[in-house]
Nucleic acid binder design. Sequence first.
DNA 1: TCTTGACTTGGAGTGCACTCCGGGTTGTTG
DNA 2: CAACAACCCGGAGTGCACTCCAAGTCAAGA
Lengths: 152, 152
Amino acid sequence: MSNEQTTEWLSPMQMADRCGVPAETLRYYEREGLLDQVHRNDGNQRRYSADDVAWVGVLRCLRVTAMPIREMKRFAELVRVGEAGVPERLELLRSHRQQVLEQRAALDDALAMIDHKIDIYSTAVAPVTDADTDGVTTTPTLGGRGIRTSSA
Amino acid sequence: MSNEQTTEWLSPMQMADRCGVPAETLRYYEREGLLDQVHRNDGNQRRYSADDVAWVGVLRCLRVTAMPIREMKRFAELVRVGEAGVPERLELLRSHRQQVLEQRAALDDALAMIDHKIDIYSTAVAPVTDADTDGVTTTPTLGGRGIRTSSA
DNA sequence: TCTTGACTTGGAGTGCACTCCGGGTTGTTG
DNA sequence: CAACAACCCGGAGTGCACTCCAAGTCAAGA
């Protein structure tokens, strides 16, 4: 409780720490116009605000859900123009939301398959085996015929 | 029910259709050793088996959950050696499963944030507005002070 | 038989999202 | 004030996962 109250601005490194994003990447985002006009001190060094921290949080949410930089840039522009951009921001987010749902569904499907395989392998690891399969006959010399694949 | 029973092998295009993966990518997977020794006809053209279809299904599950090609290659090798590879396959899949769970958690967090924003925008689009925020003051001239960020 | 389109190869090219580099500046600490 | 880390910049480089290309071969229909 002593080195907080005067800390209004964050240096690049502090910002990197805070956001979990390399300082280089923050510079890159700035270049790309995702993060605009970061404040500078007298020596021309960047000083990030709490607003910047929050905004990078938003950016990371979008990135982690695989939004391309191009689209994030568009979103940033729409935020820049203020209220006028709200309808398109909404549209953009709704469409992105859809994609995220699809991603999650795909992830869950894959997860089911992975769990299934883990199951098979775990029981196969101690007892006899062969009733497994990777969608491929388990013989060393691949290319065999015959399939018992469940879902895959 | 007429052009199925004799179709034992799939041409590259048919395979691409079936798996939802470009034929080029299948060739790439083969080069990388993810898919080994695809059968050829007399004219040296690839003929994919039902096993191949199933195996590509597995590969896609791994890819869609962001497993790097390098690791998929390792997995393919472990399948190639048969039973001896099972323990490491298990290990690999378990560790991957963990990553998938983390991905899903991150996705869900981001989704919550996106939903929250959509909510704000939707209500803001008709009534007055300003109480929104993108983690940034909504004024046209960015760089303003003051924050009311909720989560973000 | 001719044509057309799917196939073969090795290798080069692409797009994305960073990530690093070199050479110079700033700011803090002993 | 010296030393050293953190900073600045434009631009080049990286790694990944494809994706395309050229030049030739194969297969099936008119």
